[in-house]
């Protein structure tokens, strides 16, 4: 115990130093797969990151200057909209899916619950144009930025000239977003041999690997693929089908990461489950059958995953080791 405290006190000062914008850099954790985002075409710079962060927290990206990206993507909740089944956007209109977390985006092949967008650079236009989110026209947004007193100078610092164009606008936002790397949870420190997990947490990890890691795979805790997990009684949201028009994709949604899962309630694409206990109770007993239900959730005549009460307690203990307080409180990621 004393040893761990000593270790923490040694680590802590360097963490503080890491909280400065001067220290912005992208480091791919050794335990992760190769990043997907093409950083060579948009390398992370301090000025690009700072510009991206300002854009992320700027409500002028919405039609009536009321809604910023950061409204529905809150850092303390791993960039989901804390406590919201679905978010309310402009004019208090309701979205139709639960806000996804913004974490480890550099490893994503495609984005949103249905994977409709295949390039991080093309993610922001979706909420900006969505009539129930920010409802703005992109040329109007760029015009606002060009007429601002600060932005031209910030674009010059980031990209060499004060020209504000589509590519620069989107690349700056991408720099901020792909810098949102969460890889310093207790689980990560355990993987790196820097700390130990309790016996319950270790038992939970073993159960998780047996029962959950088919979809929540690798240290990204997602297989980055699409599944129907039986959350819908009738298929009211066709999910991936809307993007592919393939009947096999009806009711399929992208596996979400479980990083910081303790902080991202409510859960599922429709935000219908409010606690981790509810989620495991659902997988244990309430998975609904439909023709596209994932085969890993079909056992003979029944559906779901076999989980005892004790299994659930241990798995939840493990899931909470994925909470990364350094990430959730990193001042570089906060509105300035």
């Amino acid at each position: 115990m004393a040893g761990i405290l000593l270790l923490l006190s040694v680590v802590a000062p360097s963490c503080k130093k890491k909280g400065s914008d001067q220290d912005v850099k992208f480091v791919a954790p050794a335990s992760f797969p190769q990043p997907v985002y093409n950083m060579a075409a948009n390398p992370l710079t301090q000025s690009g990151f700072v510009l991206g962060r300002k854009l992320f927290y700027d409500s002028r990206l919405s039609r009536d200057n009321t809604i910023a990206c950061g409204n529905c993507h809150q850092q303390f909740a791993s960039f989901v909209h804390a406590g919201h089944t679905v978010s309310h956007g402009i004019d208090n209109k309701l979205g139709h899916r639960n806000t996804p977390a913004l974490v480890n985006l550099a490893w994503s092949y495609d984005f949103f619950w249905d994977g409709g967008v295949h390039d991080l650079d093309l993610v922001p236009p979706n909420p900006i144009k969505n009539p129930v989110e920010m409802d703005a026209q992109l040329p109007d947004v760029l015009a606002k930025l060009r007429n601002d007193s600060k932005y031209p100078g910030m674009f010059k610092a980031a990209f060499g000239t004060d020209e504000i164009n589509t590519t620069r606008f989107l690349q700056a936002l991408s720099q901020f977003m792909y810098a949102l790397v969460s890889a310093n949870s207790r689980y990560d420190r355990y993987v790196r041999g820097e700390t130990k997990l309790s016996s319950d947490e270790l038992a939970g990890l073993a159960l998780f690997q047996q029962r959950c890691s088919t979809c929540h795979a690798t240290d990204l805790f997602t297989d980055r693929s699409y599944h129907n997990n039986g959350i819908q009684t009738g298929i009211s949201d066709s999910g991936r089908y809307n993007v592919t028009l393939d009947p096999a994709d009806i009711g399929r949604f992208k596996t979400p990461t479980l990083r910081n899962i303790e902080k991202t309630s409510p859960y599922m694409h429709n935000g219908s489950l409010h606690s981790l206990e509810d989620v495991l109770d659902f997988y244990g007993a309430s998975v609904h059958y439909s023709p596209t239900l994932d085969t890993v959730l079909q056992r003979g005549g029944t559906t779901g995953i076999t989980l005892s009460a004790d299994d659930k307690v241990k798995i939840i203990a493990f899931l909470k080791t994925l909470t990364d307080d350094d990430f959730l409180k990193d001042p570089r990621f906060s509105e300035q």
Binding site: V117, L122, N126, K129, L138, V141, L142
Partner: peptide
């Protein structure tokens, strides 16, 4: 975000 802004699907790139 310019000439094609109304000729582009943002939700299904």
């Amino acid at each position: 975000a310019g000439a094609a802004s109304d000729m582009y699907w943002t939700w299904n790139s």
